[in-house]
Structure formats: structure tokens, C-alpha cells
Design a protein around this nucleic acid. Structure first.
Lengths: 216, 216
DNA sequence: TGTACATCAGTGAACGCGCGTTCACTGATGTAC
DNA sequence: TGTACATCAGTGAACGCGCGTTCACTGATGTAC
């Protein structure tokens, strides 16, 4: 690919630029191949246009590169949700929020998948250097869902038993939809708007219960 | 592990037993390590107690072992759902079906994950030898959900707009719940019965719609 | 303005490792006569 | 009943490969004087 165009060495004091280039290279390999196995130290170095040992200036080992990719994926997910607007209508805002979640998850599917599969890696490896990543790893994104659902309750537009439970159901459904549309594309999926209307209608509007536990 | 106890060579005509032992060894490695990378040809051979070249009698290459593990996971999932009983109450039967789905997905989490991530592998590799695997890969399991929801409609116990759409929503939610409880265990998850009651109540009972599309 | 030098950004060669795969083979066992 | 032999189930040694990691290094560049 770009491995034969020679890289310009960073100027003094700007050596840390390479760190970002390494993460970008690793992310590109992941998203292009669909497998985190493609993130090899030598492969990343090739892609970034540097010699393999140059990685060690910025990362202690291969695993740290993957952790950095995961950490950045969570930052990007949160940014994508943070910029969602609603213009006064809380239900519209909830819809937009869910749509932004799906846009990220379906548009960067492998980053999304690996981020959730390995979120504990990111937490453990980077806990000291990037503070409170524990909260950030998905929890931040989840918090936005809970808040948005809570906002739907206050104006009397809809009813909800528990924003926390509603948000959890909504989250698992969004995650399942994003994951399965990626991994089973041949299935006759309803489109995104239809799915979101169904989900949000079910989650936010319904009052009655008809499930039963295993004992009755 | 068991690599130092010597294996008894199969008797004449029973050489195909080894095929099953290889799949079992690969499955054990996957489920114990949590990574399909652990399914290496040499690793599987060690685990099965044979020399590496012995694999080639039964599988053309490493990839075929993984495909066989995936194919068997789908067979097991379908068997788990096929044995679910309902004793006349369709809503109870639906609950039991969902519970069986989650028992499989949460009890054999890595088989479940890899099966859905790589279901196309299984379809492509084995399409000729095991016929109609296309339909079997998840589709069989999904068909049981659709039927169970359809059964809830006919006796006037509940209403449902479309068993197909309802089943799809239920499926993505089950998948999301199973996947996320595995990969994010630190989250304050509602327990299985609570989740299923909420889901089935929402999916099967609700009539109204409150979602909206992005244009309005 | 010139120059010596410390530092920074990055390199080339080498290491041992486990991997997938190929090859020629071995030795037990069932069968034909 | 004995025996030759084809076949079956599986093996040991070897191959080339890409990997992660270590080491001693190089050459450009900013800075102190």
C-alpha cells in the first residue's frame, strides 16, 4: 500500500506525532481486514512507514497498541453521541442518539466489536495514564442513553417505569442489531428507521407487562 | 494438560473417530482461552494427543477445523431450542425458548460469539458436505422464535403486529444481552428473568407506536 | 556568526519461537488364500 | 489353521515464514558558547 513512499522524519520535539500515526495504522489494518490479528507490530510499522523497533518508543509491546485502538474507539463513540442535537423534542433526541450509536457501530464495525470484546484490556492497561477510563468505556455512552430516556419521562409525552431498565433494554437491542447486521448481512433486516421506531415505541411507550417468570 | 497420556490408536475402520476428537479439542481450546487464535493446528493436535500431520487426514487445513467448530455450535444451538417444551401455554413456551437461547449463549459464550462472527465461513466451507447449512446457521433458531411468537398471536392472549418483526427485535435483544453480559460483566445487569419479562412484555403485548422517523 | 556537542527520532541486523504444511515412513490389523 | 500382504491410522523430521523483541548504531537538528 503506502509502505514504499518514504516517510519524513518528525522534527525535534515532535516525535510523539508517531504515536498517533501508529494508532491510525493499527486502526486501518483492523477495519480493512476485519480481524484484530492483523494488528501485528511489524504490520503496523510497515503501514506507518517506519522500522519495527520504532514502535517501542511509544508502546511497550504489541498489546498496548491494541489497547490504544480500543481506548480511542470509545472516545470516538462518546464524541459521536455528545454532538447529537434534539431541538427541544426529547423523543426526537432519543431517536437521533440511537441513530448516532448505530452510525458509529455499523460504520466502524470492527473497531466497535473489538472495543466491546476487549474493553477490560483498555481499562486495565491504561487505567493509570488515562484516568477514569473505567467510566468512559461504554459507560459514558450508556449514561447518555439513560439521560435521554429520563428526559422523555418528564414532559408528559410518554411513560416509563425505569429509565435505567429502559435504557438497558434499548442498549442491548442496539448492540444486537448493530452486531448482527454486520455479521449476518444476508438476513432480511428491517431498515434502521423501522427498527428504531419499533424499539423506541416499545421501550418508551408501553406500560403493561405480559412476561412471566420461569416458576409460574 | 492431557498431552502426556498416550492415546490409543483407533482400530481399523474407526479412523474417523479422530475427526470428532479434533473438533472437541479445538472447541475446548476456544472455550478455555476465549480466543479463536488458540485454535492452531499444532495446538489442537497436542490437545487431541496426536501428531500434527494426523490432522490432515480429516481436515484440509487449519481453517476447516474452525469451520467445523462453528458448524457444530449451530447444530448444538438448534438442538437446545428444539427440546424446549411449553405445555400448552404459548407465552410460557416463548419464555422458555428465550431462556434456552440465553443458556446456550451465556454458557458457551465463545462458541456462540465465534459462530455468529464467522457463520459465513461455515456456510461457504461446508455447503456441499452438509446440505442446507445456509438455512441452519442461525436461521433455524430464528425460525423457532418466529413460530413461537406467531403462536402467541392466535390464542387471543396477546396482540402482535408482525411475528417476523417482533421476532427480529427479540432476537437482537437476546443477542445483545448475551454478548454484553459476557463482554461487560461489570455492568449492573438485570437478571435473566427480569430481562426476559421486560423484553417479552414489550415485544408481544404493546400495540401503540411512539417512535418517529428522522425527517419529521 | 561559527562550531562543538548533546539529544532526539529512528534504523538494520539479528535472535529464538511457534506456526502451517509436506514428505517419506512405520507398524499394527484385518483379509484372502 | 497358517501366512502373505494390502490397507489403515498415524508418525518424525524437516521446510520456510512472519512474528515480537533486543541490541548497538546513525545521522539530523537544535542549542550553548
Amino acid at each position: 500500500m503506502a509502505s514504499d513512499m518514504q516517510r519524513v522524519r518528525n522534527r525535534r520535539g515532535e516525535g510523539s506525532r508517531l504515536r498517533g500515526e501508529i494508532i491510525a495504522a493499527a486502526t486501518a489494518l483492523l477495519e480493512e481486514t476485519g480481524s484484530e490479528d492483523a494488528i501485528t507490530l511489524r504490520g503496523v510499522a510497515r503501514r506507518a512507514g517506519v522500522a519495527a523497533p520504532s514502535i517501542y518508543t511509544h508502546f511497550p509491546d504489541r498489546e498496548a497498541i491494541v489497547a490504544a485502538v480500543v481506548a480511542q474507539a470509545f472516545v470516538e463513540l462518546d464524541e459521536a453521541l455528545a454532538t447529537v442535537r434534539g431541538e427541544g423534542d426529547p423523543l426526537q433526541r432519543l431517536f437521533n442518539l440511537c441513530e448516532a450509536y448505530l452510525t458509529f457501530a455499523q460504520g466502524k464495525p470492527h473497531r466497535y466489536r473489538v472495543a466491546f470484546e476487549r474493553h477490560r484490556t483498555a481499562v486495565t492497561e491504561n487505567a493509570s495514564e488515562e484516568s477514569r477510563l473505567e467510566e468512559l468505556s461504554g459507560g459514558q455512552a450508556f449514561g447518555r442513553l439513560v439521560t435521554a430516556i429520563g428526559d422523555c419521562v418528564q414532559p408528559d409525552c410518554v411513560t416509563s417505569r425505569s429509565p435505567q431498565l429502559d435504557a438497558t433494554v434499548l442498549w442491548v437491542a442496539l448492540h444486537g442489531y448493530a452486531s448482527l447486521t454486520t455479521s449476518v448481512p444476508a438476513f432480511p433486516w428491517p431498515d434502521r428507521a423501522e427498527m428504531l421506531n419499533a424499539l423506541i415505541g416499545w421501550v418508551v411507550v408501553s406500560e403493561g407487562r405480559a412476561g412471566r417468570d420461569g416458576s409460574s
